[in-house]
Design a protein around this nucleic acid. Sequence first.
DNA 1: AACAATTAAATAGTGCACAACTTAAATTAA
DNA 2: TTAATTTAAGTTGTGCACTATTTAATTGTT
Lengths: 167, 167
Amino acid sequence: MKCKYIVHNLFYEGFTMSKLSEQSDQVVNLSLDKQLCFSLYSASNAMGRAYRPLLDKLDLTYLQYIVMMVLWEHDSVSVKSLGEKVHLDSGTLTPLLKRLEAKGLVIRARSEHDERVRVISLSEQGVSLQQQAESVPQAMLCQADMPLEELQALKQGCDRLFAKLMK
Amino acid sequence: MKCKYIVHNLFYEGFTMSKLSEQSDQVVNLSLDKQLCFSLYSASNAMGRAYRPLLDKLDLTYLQYIVMMVLWEHDSVSVKSLGEKVHLDSGTLTPLLKRLEAKGLVIRARSEHDERVRVISLSEQGVSLQQQAESVPQAMLCQADMPLEELQALKQGCDRLFAKLMK
DNA sequence: AACAATTAAATAGTGCACAACTTAAATTAA
DNA sequence: TTAATTTAAGTTGTGCACTATTTAATTGTT
């Protein structure tokens, strides 16, 4: 029962290694402290909260900041290609892009070759916001206050898990 | 400029190591691929998506599942103590607990000693749901398909980052 | 050319997360 | 024992994430 053992260690501390059919007389302990997914979820939420005071100064949310980073890197992208880069779909991106447009940071044009696609590009204001955003990663890093190797390892782990969960 | 170097490696690939005042002639490359926070955010979103088909069978969202796990472990908890365990506040939990109550899974009583506190406890249906939930962590683990040590290291990294961002 | 299938984006509706605020009960201090 | 303070939970409003569906443009097939 190899899989059972793994579950015991990673997800359920206090979960006995008896067969599933013998569970009637035991309390299955779903210890939250031992769940990787909960740690990931909590860390991601905490990250969002940590970004907030920094991004408030730019009047951006974290996802808006992410989208702006894509645009600072590529300038013109379709909603589809943007969605592939940030791993989100039009259901999330369309209203977000409308808000960025309302703030005057992006332009939502139509492609001339294909009327279906929206071409998102930066306004002058959107371009100039990049300078203000440059201090953000540094500020976040100071808050993390962890060895670089550890942060890199954490990033790699997240990337690997993401890749596994996507296929 | 140690901090600059770190930022270069972890956040901005292609960011030169020149002083900030010399940036006028370079394109600052905010490469999304190199951002730890984005990896964390994407992995957390992917995790939520991976849980969904499993939790749909239990008619639970991921956060509802998390809250049920706390209750399966402790049975009776106040909103405040629940919030401390799941790192969320009443703004998120109150509506969620009302939905769990509407499904007949929990009971939202008042404390007799202190009328301010809500005591959340499991209904019979809430208790019996635990058996159906037991297969969920195993199913998730199969999807992750990564060495146990790596998943444990990832969990540790998330926990350490969370702790740093919280203080 | 006509029509079916595909594709890109938008829309509608649910449920988080969060900040800011309100309400009401309990505690403390004057 | 009032009055000020603190505390627990709830409320309001914004912005994600996501599923399912719709609209409209393009492509493919006969």
